[in-house]
Design a protein around this nucleic acid. Structure first.
Lengths: 207, 207
DNA sequence: TGCAAAGTTGCAGTGACTGCAAAACGATCC
DNA sequence: GGATCGTTTTGCAGTCACTGCAACTTTGCA
């Protein structure tokens, strides 16, 4: 009983994980992140506190709900582009694809997260602290595409720039979501692409 | 008795703060960050645990020991440059000056921190989570220099790039400190300046 | 049906962090 | 040299995130 790669066990796990993530975001948006205890979250998702920590290493992680498969997925996408595409563009496209998919699958969750992140912007920064392996994965993929030795800065710098772009974009989006999050990330990455040495003029973009 | 701006009280406070920071870094380097309790740190610095938390909001913060005056100092430096200097260069110079000063004043502490950060790179990321106000300060200064409205992305993006550059530089420096940290930060910021759209060739810097 | 592997739970324990109220201390004025 | 006032230090009691461990339950498979 294990045909389409997803057993009953797997389905249950996915549902539990999703329920915990959802409960965390919902309660945090409703009562404020640190007025919510893990006990409440676990109760809302109908599991024990101990189980919560079997799924997420910390409360922070549950709020962001970083998909552990996102890193590998993006790395694969980067490597799948033809050689005519620059490493930079391959990276940018992969990030955008991931964001678009994520928003399509769970837009409501992101709208709630927005509320929480508006109150506690530091949580967004902390979120990236847990994704060191994913960053490494992406940097390796970029490095491979660019034909650079592993010790070169460029890949790591590009990935770090991606995090920075995402952070800035989410912050802007949280204040005013009339522009799609993907657009904002793309714009920010675009600036990183062409260089920050010259500040834009007053009227150019940037809301 | 309050002539040279520094009373006995102030001196004691500075000494206590320094002692706590020093004790945190030293013990973390010696025994591993999470095998050190705040109780031990406080004991080493000869104060109570409660006093530790009067100085630092968290153990993380004590490890990094971010100088609360660093933000204002850098912002001031940025604004002090003549108008012939681009905002980007003003920012870069200010960051470098701060790093150089810091290393000159407490090089030994940074060498110990290096040990800790090699084991736990995530702590460096988390460190930046606590410096939201400083980032805002710097972004405002950059924005003012560039004559941009407050809502523009450029200043925030530049400052975020600075954090990213610093992170990458420290990581590289931790692996091999034969090149000065300032050099590495400068190099990384240089790449942000000229743009990441085109990956460098194999032999260009970055090793 | 029965066995093994994977997942869940409760429990006891550690340690970070907070609010509060009392004590110790430093600055100041007489 | 006190009396006094504002600041800092401290102990204490409490909350909550998080961990290891050892049962217990559920699922996968023969």
């Amino acid at each position: 009983m294990n045909q389409p790669g997803e057993s009953l066990r797997d389905r249950k796990k996915r549902r539990t994980r999703a329920a915990l993530e959802r409960a965390t975001v919902r309660l945090a948006a409703e009562k404020g992140y640190d007025h919510v205890t893990v006990e409440e979250i676990a109760a809302e998702a109908d599991v024990s506190v101990r189980t919560f920590f079997n799924y997420f290493a910390s409360k922070d992680e549950a709020l962001i709900g970083a998909d552990p498969e996102a890193g590998p997925r993006m790395a694969e996408r980067i490597l799948a582009f033809p050689d005519t595409v620059t490493p930079f563009e391959a990276y940018r496209s992969s990030v955008l694809a991931e964001i678009t998919d994520e928003l399509n699958n769970a837009r409501d969750l992101w709208l709630l997260r927005k509320e929480v992140l508006m109150q506690r912007p530091d949580l967004l920064v902390r979120a990236f602290a847990n994704s060191a392996e994913s960053e490494q994965l992406l940097a390796d993929a970029v490095g491979q595409r660019a034909g650079l030795p592993e010790s070169h800065v460029y890949p790591r710098l590009l990935v770090a720039a991606g995090s920075a772009a995402f952070r800035c974009a989410v912050t802007r989006w949280a204040r005013d979501d009339s522009v799609a999050l993907g657009e904002l990330v793309s714009e920010a990455l675009g600036l990183f692409g062409t260089g920050l040495a010259h500040a834009p003029r007053r009227h150019e973009g940037g809301s």
